[in-house]
Nucleic acid binder design. Structure first.
Length: 306
DNA sequence: AAGACGAAAGTGGTTGA
DNA sequence: TCAACAACTTTCGTCTT
């Protein structure tokens, strides 16, 4: 699916390629092109300053960032000063229980953010992969989510829905066209909830997100339908003109893109049915038809028959 | 038989009082 | 908080290829 390969045909002088260890990508300093991503860092994920430390931390078991999740089975120490049989505890025992409680609460607070993040990253990775998102988008989403956790926005909301909202926000910012429906499809949370979280993120984190452009959808819809570059370019031109005439305001960008694709497919004799296009665009045929009708009318586009 | 078209009623979200 | 409203969906009947 990905066209990116380490030895792609694009000329990029070897001395211009640098390795970005943070992101795990090889990047060309000339063009900014990502040569290869998902490089596995073979080194340890910790630093040791003394030989003893190194000895102590040698790797056994999984990596440090594995998800640690208590599955809701963590022990709770009751606030009542009774033992399991319901008897009142003697004063000495009481003090001891008090210490346990304090210790436990502290440990939980300290690890709660980490645990939350670990679970969220798991979830993010899962959804991101199902949607086929590039690493850069997942990173952006992770960053947004982390900020949300730090601001305490996740409290009272499900991790899943906030993760989904972060992904949506990241997609919007990176101009990767994905609808809310597509993203919430892989989540237990419904679209409404994800949308609400998304708006919350925008407001609380003051993310600036560019207005979604129907042209962003053209590429994806086009390639999903196996259309030629010419057709996609035609569709983009149609959308540009439509924008100039102010036809795009308040309309579903996916629907507009679908209609533009439909028209372009007719012009370039790569005909696809309205149903096919509507399906991959995530709108109905009716919407495609309505946009189509508006576009050819307002732009005075002639469809060559046959 | 499948696709295109359009009308009518229903739905969820935004806006403005 | 509620009602009006625009955009979109669902459903269905008709016409065209």
């Amino acid at each position: 699916m990905s066209e990116k390969s380490p030895n792609s045909s694009t000329p990029c002088p070897p001395d211009k390629i640098i390795f970005d260890a943070e992101r795990g990508e090889y990047i060309c300093t000339e063009t900014g092109e990502v040569i290869e991503e998902r490089i596995i860092d073979q080194g340890p994920e910790w630093r040791a300053f003394t030989p003893e430390e190194k000895e102590k931390r040698s790797r056994v078991g999984g990596p440090l960032n594995q998800t640690i999740h208590d599955r809701g089975l963590s022990t709770l120490i009751d606030w009542k000063d009774k033992d399991a049989m319901g008897r009142t505890l003697d004063p000495k025992k009481r003090l001891e229980v008090l210490r346990w409680r304090k210790w436990q609460i502290r440990a939980r607070i300290q690890s709660s953010i980490d645990r939350n993040l670990a679970q969220a990253m798991n979830e993010l990775e899962r959804i991101g992969n199902l949607l086929g998102l590039p690493k850069a988008v997942k990173d952006e989403a992770a960053l947004i989510y982390r900020k949300a956790v730090e601001k305490g926005l996740v409290r009272g909301r499900s991790i899943e829905s906030v993760v989904a909202a972060s992904i949506y926000a990241a997609c919007r910012r990176m101009k990767i066209a994905r609808t809310l429906d597509e993203i919430s499809q892989f989540t237990k949370a419904n679209r409404k909830e994800v949308a609400r979280c998304y708006r919350l993120l925008l407001r609380e984190l003051t993310l600036d997100v560019p207005v979604s452009d129907p042209k962003d959808y053209v590429m994806r819809i086009g390639s999903l339908l196996g259309l030629s570059g010419t057709t996609m370019r035609t569709a983009a031109e149609i959308l540009d003109k439509a924008k100039g005439l102010g036809l795009t305001a308040g309309k579903d960008p996916a629907g507009l893109a679908a209609a533009a694709i439909y028209i372009a497919s007719l012009i370039n004799e790569e005909r696809r049915t309205q149903k096919e296009i509507a399906q991959v665009a995530g709108v109905t045929e009716v919407t495609v038809r309505n946009r189509y009708k508006e576009l050819i009318q307002e732009l005075k586009i002639q469809i060559p028959n046959q």
